[in-house]
Design a protein around this nucleic acid. Structure first.
Lengths: 148, 148
DNA sequence: TGACAATATATTGTGCACAATTAAATTGTG
DNA sequence: CACAATTTAATTGTGCACAATATATTGTCA
């Protein structure tokens, strides 16, 4: 019994979903040498980016930009609290809300983090303009997929 | 005490790593309506793509193109075996090698899968040419990051 | 042939990611 | 005010992802 060859549109190499999936993992690996010395994982670093922009966010104010839910964030934030990056406490006015605040230590890590973007630009093998164009296209793609 | 504003290169929205990370998750969600009826998760679907191309691969021959290790694949393949998509058995000549073979059921799912790429193309909001260009750029980026 | 290095997979432990559910606080409405 | 609806997090259960380690088989060379 002869088996038909796999159609080209099902080949792994032709899947943009896999290109994105695989490159996402490559990014996490590329960040590791910078993040591990700080004691941060890659998703925790994303949380730090948001808190450096604006401190005292609620879980939802982290979840929305990151597109994550409380099932992911709650244990992640507990680990970050245990590691001394943030504090977790209920909002004074509305006890439903958990507010996340940077510790002095967490705030202080921003100085080290400032060196990362230039290093990653170098690792990317692209110039800043092309990388920004690519970023916008990938952002648009993500947006289309989410509303589809 | 005044806190300096977060530098723009550390803003989450300016990070291509996050655009890729977030779009990868959006893809997994976009595939779900097609994969769930088949009983496949997204990473399992990637394994199926490789097996439809060429059956009887070793764990390593799956691991290399997927950029995953045995710590991820072994339990994933056991779940796929339990679900009836594949069989796992040692190579006759070299007992170190575990060979993965599609079951008839696993092979038969390819027909359903053939309809997925067109649907995802539609979800992407792009035409095939632009999507292919974008895929190649993302693949190149991943390659640069891995060898950096 | 008999150590021993190399290879291939599996195991262990930690940390995401997400669906589904639960629980508590607040808001809106009659 | 009572109380249903809503909002916000936390919990539970399953499935990746990966570093580090362990185990078993094969190849090699003295």
């Amino acid at each position: 019994m002869i088996k038909a060859p796999s159609p080209p549109e099902l080949r792994l190499d032709n899947q943009i979903c896999f290109a994105v999936y695989s490159t996402a993992h490559a990014f996490a690996q590329a960040y590791r040498p910078w993040l591990e010395p700080m004691g941060l994982t890659y998703p925790q670093y994303l949380v730090m980016l948001l808190l450096w922009e604006r401190d005292g966010r609620s879980v939802n104010e982290l979840a929305q930009p990151l597109q994550l839910d409380s099932g992911t964030l709650t244990p992640l934030l507990k680990r970050m609290e245990k590691a001394g990056f943030v504090t977790r406490g209920r909002d004074d006015k509305d006890e439903r809300i958990t507010r996340i605040h940077l510790t002095d230590f967490g705030q202080s890590l921003q100085d080290q983090a400032r060196r990362i973007p230039a290093a990653m630009l170098c690792n990317s093998g692209l110039d800043l303009n092309r990388l920004n164009e690519l970023r916008e296209q990938v952002q648009e793609l993500g947006k289309s997929l989410r509303q589809a």
